[in-house]
């Protein structure tokens, strides 16, 4: 490295013009672009195309016109699943955000006990979604799991949490929160540590209490982080699918059917790949709209600066 720095010095000192610096040509990005195009963009095009076909997985897809789409719009389960998807997304966001914000700000303190506890709070991140869902699935058994002992404490006399509509939805929000709050806490912790201490010193001199300092300094300073974390939460809420598949399998009844679940079932259990692609297209539209809305409401520039500041 030292030679490179010497050269820089040489370039700066000397008045002689440096020759045109060689730059990478498009070949450097081509493999990545092709790869991405083939496995991500092509599927995006195909998913829309497939939505106008019927395909059982045997032979080739056959053109079906608007058949799948008219079915989609009259399918009450799709409507219900869309509602459930949005409900779970909003509820998860509304519980995870204040929790991770408060925990993150608290964990940003440099005290020893906070460091130790933060290390404990981090532990769920070491488990995969599948492991977490399967673990809680066992805990929620009404006869032999934790639900049998702890259920009565929270109003489920017979331990029947996951077999009731409200209980199953709450269980999903809880399990997803258990898994992801640590991650968002981490984001808030990092951001809170970057708030200049001098701001708080000034506030203390002004006689501001803890709450006022939090409201006037911490919250506004974390505004961009809230946006980033919320985006990740909302877009990531599509990954509820794994948790739902393993925790409730859509039940009880149709209470926890979400869009990806319907799509998976139509395709890989019903072999109706055309209809599954139609649901998938709806999913792409919902997902993209959500992301764009967040970006619009929060300001794209801020979003980009957070990402580019990495």
């Amino acid at each position: 490295m030292s030679t490179a720095f010497e050269k820089v010095a040489a370039v700066r000192r000397g008045s002689r013009r440096a020759a045109a610096t060689p730059r990478p040509n498009f070949l450097y990005i081509l493999p990545a672009a092709l790869f991405f195009g083939f496995f991500a963009l092509l599927p995006l095009v195909l998913v829309v195309a497939l939505s106008f076909t019927t395909w059982t997985g045997i032979g080739d897809p056959e053109a079906a016109g608007m058949e799948n789409w008219s079915r989609l719009f009259s399918d009450e389960k799709v409507l219900a699943a869309t509602r459930t998807t949005l409900f779970l997304t909003v509820l998860s966001w509304a519980t995870q955000t204040p929790l991770s914000l408060l925990l993150g700000v608290w964990a940003a303190g440099r005290q020893r006990n906070r460091a130790v506890l933060s290390a404990v709070f981090f532990l769920p991140l070491l488990l995969s979604s599948a492991a977490i869902a399967l673990m809680f699935h066992r805990f929620l058994d009404p006869n032999f799991g934790l639900a049998a002992d702890l259920g009565p404490l929270i109003g489920f006399e017979d331990g029947n949490i996951i077999g009731t509509r409200g209980g199953a939805l709450a269980a999903i929000v809880f399990v997803v929160g258990w898994q992801f709050v640590p991650f968002h806490t981490l984001i808030y912790q990092a951001a809170a540590r970057n708030i200049p201490a001098v701001l708080y010193d000034a506030a203390t001199i002004d006689g501001a209490g803890r709450w006022q300092a939090f409201r006037r300094i911490t919250l506004p300073q974390l505004r961009n982080t809230v946006v980033t974390s919320s985006t990740l939460m909302i877009v990531g809420s599509l990954t509820f699918f794994e948790t739902i598949l393993l925790l409730t399998n859509g039940g009880p009844g149709i209470a926890t059917h979400v869009l990806p679940f319907l799509m998976y079932r139509a395709g890989f259990e019903g072999y109706e790949f055309g209809y599954a692609a139609t649901i998938a297209t709806l999913l792409v539209v919902v997902g993209t709209t959500l992301s764009l809305l967040i970006v619009r409401f929060s300001g794209f520039a801020k979003m980009r600066s957070t990402l580019e500041g990495l």
Partner: peptide, 9 residues
């Protein structure tokens, strides 16, 4: 079927 059958695996 009892009350908590919906949660029994």
């Amino acid at each position: 079927f009892g009350t908590n059958f919906a949660a029994v695996e």
